[in-house]
Nucleic acid binder design. Sequence first.
RNA 1: GUGGGCGUAGCUCAAUUUGGUUAGAGCAUCAGAUUGUGGAUCUGAGGGUUGCCGGUUCAAUUCCGGUCGUCCACCCCA
Length: 441
Amino acid sequence: MKYTAPRGTKDILPEEARLWQYIEDNCRDIFFLYNYQEIRTPVFEATELFSRSIGQTTDIVKKEMYTFADRKGRSLTLRPEATAAVVRAGLENNLISPDNFSKFFYIGPMFRYERPQAGRQRQFHQAGVEAFGSADPLLDAEVIVMAVKLFNSLGLTGLRVNLNSVGCGKCQPGYRQAVQDYFRSHIGGMCADCQERLETNPMRILDCKEAACQKVIAAAPASASHLCEECDAHFKKLLNYLDAAKVEYQRSDRLVRGLDYYTKTAFEVVSSQLGAQNAVCGGGRYDNLVEELGGKATPAIGFAIGLERLVEIMKQTKLAGHDSRGLLLYIATIGEPARKVAFDLLLKGRESGIPADMDYSGKSLKAQMKAADRQKAQYVYIIGEDEVAKGGAVLKNMATSEERTVTFENILYEPFGLEAVREEPSCGGCGGNCTCGDDND
RNA sequence: GUGGGCGUAGCUCAAUUUGGUUAGAGCAUCAGAUUGUGGAUCUGAGGGUUGCCGGUUCAAUUCCGGUCGUCCACCCCA
């Protein structure tokens, strides 16, 4: 094969694309239900936007960004995540300010230069939301509830919500220090990675999976016990709201998100069906980011769902069968005159909203029937020499094998199944937007 | 960036252990059995630079090295 998709990218083929459409439609429905409005931002931005917001010391910025210089030498970066871009767009267009509450959602591709593995690609897709202008824990609750409801609406169960508070600018440094002090006194028996992390990013030690480290981590100071009064109150209220909404969650003292901008609430939704990369949704509050990027201090919170991972769960849960949209009509022909008639009928049929097709490669009738069957056509209209002369042909119901003669004029207007789609809008001038038309789902 | 598994027909896999004549099967495709009728059955046909490059050898799909790709894990994250 001379050309293949670049490493870490994947083609989404028609069969799977239907599942993607279903999932994306579902996301939009839920987001609109919660009054989030769509925003579409460029897939690349000034490099500095990401390095500033995500954090210079994070892996994403240090080694995972697709960064390039354009022809004028500007440093641009394919977005590794959307939050920074949404904040930038919101500020640039005056949609974000402390006294203007606003909620956005987005769906689109993100790019990170990583070694591909199960549930991890270089181009992947996220659906996410961002809400600006409220520091109220009730908003945190809404966002988490929305994520849960979204998964429920797709029929998914068995997911777990992990929840933590990482504190704010006031209490986080103290906690970080406490964690570092604790691990420093136990570092001898811990893995090489953790020894490294002790100085670079002590919080990440809490995430280590090594058995030896786990023992030490189990007794590490919990973030909840180091929260300042404000963060503590915020967290407790959030837990209350979630309990009241009957949302199940798991307190996770070890949950530390990998982006620097998170404050207070951090959460993720994990699945046991995903392998090592088990987070299907991650999010949290980021009360300092807007100011960091040049806006007035504005509290905010959001999450992102990994769509590839969601698709994977849907497939494994056998929830992927939402899509059998087949042909309604296939026109089979014998001879050139019949093909002309068929082509004309085909175009007219499509005009009135009938999904229809025919053969374009001169196949035998038998082969055409086979093709119709493969494409799950409900009806086949068979036109031959005689039929062209008579002005009518055989319409075959593929499910029952029944055949009956129907004239060319009537083929697009005959009853038994076709009547639902053939009605001309009788309400003139509706522009096709009324319910008189072609709903054949 | 690190480690390991795997690259043979459109797809799923044999044959490689111990190098040896023509690299097989199922599914799929196409055709025929059925002069103008799909799904089932039977018959037949087409389809391969054994990922690529090099080395060893009389001889390499098989052994060795490299490279690319892929999968899984680490790291990290959605």
